[in-house]
Every structure is written in structure tokens, then in C-alpha cells.
């Protein structure tokens, strides 16, 4: 089948570009860039999201309102707009220009920070009230209770949802293409602009690559969900206070 042969040829000629971009003759790119961007992005977004979730649940308006406002704004505005804002504001704030990579990273941290904070918030609110009450009754402070009792449980229960968000982050990195970040989609477009005659093949390869990565991670998420559900299935006391941490999937389909 000529189609498969063409795919093989394209892959054979360009696999390095797809993998690591034009490194070492340029910045690190390709799928490695995509993964680094995603991992660092969500890694930095995570502590931010915990802080924002706690701010949203805080009894102090001064903390609650800005956090809630930020989450609503990020949820209501396209990722591209956030990219444009960050692209414009970061040089203004820092005083010098930044690379597309840095811009994309900052965007992802803010964007995913807001979405992740909703996941964390759902996890905290899904725990039975009795947990916080028991901790407070024993004399723990609010923050102490959060640290020792609430967050360990909430974050563990929400691991599948957080992994889902990681998959979303990988998908969101594709928008770096618009500001010339040399990630996988950019690499694919480079190849297409060189070849010009086989656009379908190139983009087919691109789609399949993302599919493989995201699908595997989604399978991992589902396995994790099953494992956590079976671990948490304990003996519930009679007045059914079951802690069903609803798996909130806030995948933003970008």
C-alpha cells in the first residue's frame, strides 16, 4: 500500500525533527519540547492550584474574590487570548523580551493553575465534613488540618482528574505553534512546508503521535481511578457519609 510506504518514508526522513526539533542547530523542539512544556507547566501549576483552591474556599473575602475572579476569567477566555496577553504583559513586567517557550510556559501555568484549582476544590469539598470537624475537635488549626488531614486525602482522590488535566495540558501545548514555539505541531508544519505534496500524510502522523501519547495516559488514568476506588471502599458508618470524590473531568478540549 503506497500510503503506508509514504508514511514510512516521511517518518524515516524526519523522525529526528519530530522528536527533538532542530536541536542542536536550534532550540529543543519536537515531541520532547511538548513533553517538557507539559510536565514543567503542570508541575508549576500544581502548587498554584492548591493555593487558589484554598483561597476560593477561604472565609476571607480578600482572598476569595480575586481567586474566584481569576478562575472565572480563565474559564471564560480562549487559551489563545491568554497567550496573547502573556506574550504582551511578561516583557512589560520583566523589562525584556522573552522567548515563545517561556511565554507558553507562563500561559500554561496560569491556565492550568485555574482549571486544576477547580479539580482540587472539588476534591476538598467531596470529603465528608466530619474529617475537618474531627481534626478541629482534636485542636488542629485550619491550616494544620488542611495540611495533615484534608489535602492528603483530597489530592489522592483527585489523582485521576489531575492526570486528565495533564493530558489536556499536552493538547494545549499545540497552541504554541501560533507563537512559533518549536513543539511537535510546529515541527510537523515545518515538514509539510518542505514537502508540500503530502499534507495528509504529515498531519496523519501528527494526529497519530498525539493519539498514542494521550491515549496511553488516559488508560493510565482509568487504571488509577479503579485502583483508588477499590482502596477507598471502606466500611461506611450507617448514616451514609460516603466520601465519593466525584471524578471531576474538566478536560478543556483544546
Amino acid at each position: 500500500m503506497p500510503f503506508i510506504l509514504d508514511l514510512y518514508t516521511i517518518l524515516h526522513d524526519n523522525w529526528l525533527l519530530l522528536l527533538i526539533g532542530s536541536y542542536p542547530n536550534g532550540p529543543l523542539g519536537g515531541i520532547v519540547c511538548t513533553l517538557i512544556l507539559s510536565v514543567v507547566g503542570i508541575g508549576l501549576a500544581f502548587p498554584l492550584s492548591v493555593l487558589m483552591a484554598m483561597a476560593r474556599l477561604s472565609p476571607w473575602r480578600l482572598l476569595r474574590w480575586p481567586a474566584t475572579a481569576l478562575v472565572y476569567v480563565v474559564r471564560g477566555v480562549p487559551l489563545l487570548m491568554v497567550i496573547l496577553w502573556v506574550y504582551f504583559l511578561v516583557p512589560v513586567l520583566i523589562g525584556r523580551n522573552v522567548s515563545g517557550f517561556t511565554t507558553m510556559l507562563c500561559t500554561l501555568v496560569i491556565y492550568e493553575g485555574a482549571y486544576l484549582s477547580e479539580v482540587v476544590r472539588a476534591g476538598i469539598q467531596a470529603l465528608p465534613r466530619g474529617q475537618m470537624e474531627a481534626a478541629r475537635a482534636l485542636g488542629h488549626s485550619h491550616l494544620g488540618a488542611m495540611w495533615s488531614v484534608i489535602l492528603p486525602q483530597a489530592l489522592y482522590n483527585m489523582l485521576p482528574s489531575m492526570l486528565s488535566q495533564f493530558v489536556s495540558t499536552i493538547k494545549e501545548t499545540t497552541l504554541g505553534y501560533v507563537i512559533n514555539v518549536q513543539e511537535l505541531t510546529f515541527a510537523a508544519n515545518q515538514i509539510n512546508n518542505q514537502l508540500l505534496t503530502k499534507p495528509f500524510h504529515v498531519f496523519f502522523i501528527l494526529a497519530v503521535s498525539y493519539f498514542v501519547v494521550c491515549w496511553s495516559l488516559t488508560q493510565l488514568t482509568q487504571w488509577l481511578e479503579r485502583r483508588i476506588a477499590s482502596k477507598r471502599r471502606g466500611i461506611a458508618p450507617k448514616p451514609s457519609t460516603k466520601a465519593r470524590a466525584a471524578s471531576v473531568t474538566l478536560e478543556s478540549p483544546t
Binding site: I170, K171, A188, F200
Partner: peptide
């Protein structure tokens, strides 16, 4: 397929591919 492939890539696949 539609949940695991980024939307932008789907768009490119349609429009260019």
C-alpha cells in the same frame, strides 16, 4: 480519537490534510 488528539491538530488535519 476526538478526545485524545488536540483540537488544533484535528483542524489542521481537516484543512491542510
Amino acid at each position: 480519537y476526538h478526545r485524545n488528539v488536540p483540537t488544533l491538530v484535528q483542524l489542521m488535519l481537516w484543512y491542510f490534510g
